[in-house]
Write a protein that binds this DNA or RNA. Structure first.
Length: 851
RNA sequence: GCGGGCAUGACGGAACUGGUAGACGUACCGGACUUAAAAUCCGGAGCCAGAAAUGGCGUGCCGGUUCAAUUCCGGCUGCCCGCACCA
């Protein structure tokens, strides 16, 4: 009678129907509350991986659930399609980047469609297409006009392998985030997006993001790195100018024993011109890499310039001026004053160069007469001493007073400093969005007139010579200056690909508008994104850039919101155990078979295999499972169910074959239930006790599942769903007192699983005799009357230890509950005839007898 | 070094604002069906003792608050993540 569930046929059937009916097409409809949910769009590598499956399953559950709840949902998808791999493919295999990328997109789109995602494909964006980057160029021009873009010469991170500049955020442990090559320092002219102009706003805005993980907000806060301090100017003793330093500890000025300049400080360059030894020292400093290891081991190196400055507070006192390798030009003013007694790094430096160490902050309870600093600087709270007018103040008071005194002497000012630096976006690559600027000898950097947009990438490029193919192109860069008409040269740098992904969320709102980046009315309707789902690895880079873009786009009138993403969810990674052969080679899971005891062997030659604990799926360890294989074997619903059931979505998930099998078994169980119940004719009338109880379970489950979906507790939702299945299977379809509850239960179950398992739910719904599609059906409502139990099970403890459970009517007076508890045999035994000293009754929950 | 997080059966994990620890699943054990296997169905199980009733112990370790602690506080240990010469 029952037929075997065929996921391949069923899934493609419903995917086709949804596509034909454009079920997930979103329109602006002001009569309904909107809900904009999106996942981080993928780089089109050509194949989806399990991380994608997890990410898109999560946003899809939200999209489908919100839709059923009556929201007007937009759930779009796109492609982060610019980037170096396409150029590498062009170089290695002779395919043009555009072709390579579009072929990959086509393949990945097919795979994503097989997942059954409720996506509005009419809003698909592809960042490498001119119909996308044209608008990005417009944004660039608008930002330029608004003063949000700068061109400046600066020290940059140079990736020698990818031959390009990297942003600070893209340097991980001193290496390129993509190539892994050790990054060098170079001085180049670059375009910068002035993200620092919004430093304070980006920091303050974090407070409003109450639906973001605290962890991500904290990471951004630290990255922006606000410090309160002072800029202080020390006059050079020779009368030839002054040195401005930044400090967060103006309270310790009386403990100053030296000034240290960055090797890249302008004054140092000046001095080096006349001092070959200093020039040599600078070269030595810049040679040391920026890797963790290099910094860790690099010794504090200083070079005494022989210059002296006058102390701002103490007349007659002078401080020597050093050049020190640990002072960064990029932070503050590139110059510091050293107070060795209260800063470990300054202390190390002072000891090495035999400079004075004067403590000015006295630890609580220490004796001023004998307190000295040895090898460890004192960096904690205390009371100021040896500090003239600051004596007796605590650190906070002294900071304030010192700033007042500095300002009074016109020697500086209180100031706020951010660690955040402007975002260098110039990349010396071909496969990126061309920067719409023309360099003219006479007019300088001239923006490309809007009528000439887009600046399109030339197609005939060669990738065989290292460096920037646009630079090598014979004609593309030669244009007339838009201002004076003389021969000029196009900007040959392209944008960092993080620019592309910084505004795609807004483009989705009016994805096909050819005239402007964003149609304001559409943006005002859809933005901000209500729920964004993606990996934590973008906690700083992408998410900070997008927040900057939102502000810049607001300032230039493109959108009306500051914060792009009202809600953020960061999912965990997908892991798998890895296998190593006796020879030490990594093995793919499908070539390995496991024994019952956890050991494993190679399927082909039966040799033993070492099983290593789960780690992030990666091709290099071969511990990957191809989603395509799982979907074509078990169906997308099985893959989705397993993704959701075993671990909370924010945590890492261990992919196991056994887990998938379990999910598959449950899919089949659901199918059998639907088929069995479809033939049951429900009879109206009396419910027996079991049926009555099950009805309560059904309605309680509706409430629980709804809450679980709201809170991203998808693993909990799966557990509750399975509990409901277990309860329903206890009912007897042949018993007229139970059959209609059974039917109600299976129908409700079908609706509840739909956001997670859309294909089988739709098929079950049809099998149960419904004419309309489940995707068009409203979310079930729990009957409040059935959510309240009339009896409760109360735990009875004696001295905090559970001794009995008693079942009583709900909301019984405390006296009666107490009496019932004390008359229980188990409680009596535990009391051992002793009189209770005190009885605590928590209504409908617990009784604790203190003996 | 600085900042943050986590620690629960064999395993993944559950437990709302302190109130019956171990839901749900995986693996395992026993049984039914089958010529047999798979699938399916029924049952078992935190650990220790006991035939059982039952008792003791138990949420990384030590201590505290409380009638009551996986949950709150203090101190350790271990693992994970972010930042890192940021003045």
């Amino acid at each position: 009678m029952t037929t075997r569930y065929n996921p391949q046929n069923t899934e493609s059937k419903w995917q086709n129907i949804w596509a034909e009916k454009e079920s997930f097409r979103a329109f602006e409809d002001k009569s309904k509350p909107k809900y904009f949910v999106m996942s981080m769009f993928p780089y089109p590598s050509g194949r989806i991986h399990m991380g994608h499956v997890r990410n898109y399953t999560l946003s899809d559950v939200v999209a489908r659930y919100k839709r059923a709840q009556g929201f007007n949902v937009m759930h779009p998808m796109g492609w982060d399609a610019f980037g170096l791999p396409a150029e590498n493919a062009a170089r290695d295999r002779g395919v043009h980047p555009a072709k390579w990328t579009h072929d990959n997109i086509d393949a990945m789109r097919r795979e994503l469609r097989s997942m059954g995602l409720a996506i509005d494909w009419s809003r698909e964006v592809t960042t490498c297409d001119a119909d996308y980057y044209k608008h990005q160029q417009k944004l660039f021009l608008d930002f330029l006009k608004a003063g949000l873009i700068d061109r400046k010469e600066s020290w940059v991170n140079w990736d020698p392998l990818d031959n390009t500049v990297l942003a600070n955020e893209q340097v991980i442990d001193g290496k390129g985030w993509r190539s892994g090559a050790v990054v060098e320092k170079r001085k180049l002219s670059q375009w910068f997006l002035k993200i620092t102009a919004f430093a304070e706003e980006l920091l303050a805005g974090l407070q409003t993001l109450d639906r973001w993980p605290d962890k991500v907000r904290l990471m951004q806060e630290n990255w922006i790195g606000k410090s309160q301090g002072a800029k202080v100017t020390f006059a050079l003793e020779n009368g030839q100018g002054a040195i401005e330093i930044f400090t967060t500890r103006p309270d310790t000025l009386f403990g100053a024993s030296f000034i240290a300049l960055s090797p890249n400080h302008p004054l140092v360059a000046e001095l080096a011109a006349k001092d070959p030894k200093l020039a040599e020292f600078i070269v030595a400093c810049n040679r040391i890499g920026t890797t963790e290891a290099a910094i860790e081991t690099a010794e504090k190196m200083g070079y005494d310039t022989g210059l002296k400055v006058a102390h701002v507070f103490e007349g007659g006192k002078t401080l020597p001026v050093y050049v020190a390798n640990f002072v960064l030009m990029e932070y503050g003013t590139g110059a510091i004053f050293g107070c060795p007694a209260h800063d470990q790094r300054d202390l190390d430096f002072a000891r090495k160069y035999h400079l004075s160490v004067t403590p000015v902050v006295l630890p609580k309870g220490a004796d001023a007469a004998v307190f000295t600093v040895g090898t460890e600087a004192f960096t904690e709270e205390g009371t100021l001493f040896n500090s003239s007018f600051l004596d007796g103040l605590d650190v906070e008071e002294a900071k304030k007073k010192a700033i007042v005194e500095i300002e009074k002497r016109n020697a500086g000012t209180g100031t706020v400093q951010y660690r955040l630096r402007d975002w260098g976006v110039s990349r010396q690559r071909y496969w990126g969005c061309p920067i719409p600027v023309i360099h003219c000898e006479a007019c300088g950097a001239v923006p490309v007139p809007e009528k000439d947009l887009p600046v399109v990438l030339p197609e005939d490029v060669a990738f065989d010579t290292p460096g920037n193919p646009l630079d090598h192109h014979p004609t593309w860069k030669n244009v007339a200056c838009p201002q004076c008409g003389k021969a000029a040269r196009r900007e040959t740098d392209t944008c960092d690909t993080f620019v592309d992904s910084s505004w795609y969320f807004a483009r989705y709102c009016s994805a096909t508008d050819a005239t402007q980046p964003v149609a304001r009315e559409a943006a005002d309707y859809w933005l901000p994104v209500d729920q964004y789902v993606g990996g934590v690895e973008h906690a700083i880079l992408h998410l900070l850039y997008a927040r900057f873009f939102a502000r810049a786009m607001k300032k230039t009138g493109h959108i009306g919101v500051d914060e792009p993403f009202a809600g953020l969810f960061t999912q965990g990674m997908v892991c798998h155990e890895s296998y190593k052969s006796a020879e030490g080679a990594w093995l793919y899971p499908e070539t390995v078979q496991k024994n019952a005891d956890g050991t494993a062997f190679k399927i082909d030659d039966k040799t033993p295999v070492a099983v290593l604990r789960g780690d992030k799926m990666s091709k290099s360890k071969c511990n990957v499972v191809d989603p395509g294989r799982i979907i074509s074997g078990y169906g997308a619903d099985t893959a989705r169910l397993f993704m959701l059931s075993d671990s909370p979505p924010e945590r890492d998930l261990e992919w196991t074959e056994a887990g998938v099998e379990g999910a598959w078994r449950y899919i089949n169980r659901l199918w059998r239930m639907a088929e069995d119940v479809a033939s049951v004719t429900p009879s109206a009338g009396q419910f027996n006790e079991k049926a009555e109880k099950t009805r309560r379970v059904i309605h309680r489950t509706i409430a629980q599942i709804s809450e679980a979906y709201e809170r991203f507790h998808f693993n909990g939702a799966v557990a509750k769903i399975r509990e409901l299945s277990n309860a329903l299977e206890d009912l007897d379809a042949a018993n007229p007192q139970e059959s209609s509850v059974l039917r109600e239960g299976v129908e409700t179950l079908t609706q509840l699983i739909a956001p997670m398992l859309p294909h089988i739910a739709e098929e079950m719904w049809q099998t149960l005799g419904h004419q309309t599609m489940l995707v068009e059906t409203a979310w079930p409502k729990a009957d409040p009357a059935l959510l309240v139990e009339n009896t409760v099970t109360i735990a009875v403890q004696v001295n905090g230890k559970l001794r009995a459970t008693i079942t009583l009517a709900r909301d019984l007076p405390a006296k009666e509950v107490e009496a019932a508890a004390l008359s229980d045999e188990g409680v009596k035994r535990a009391l051992d005839n002793k009189a209770p000293k005190k009885v605590i009754v928590v209504p409908n929950r617990i009784v604790n007898v203190v003996a």
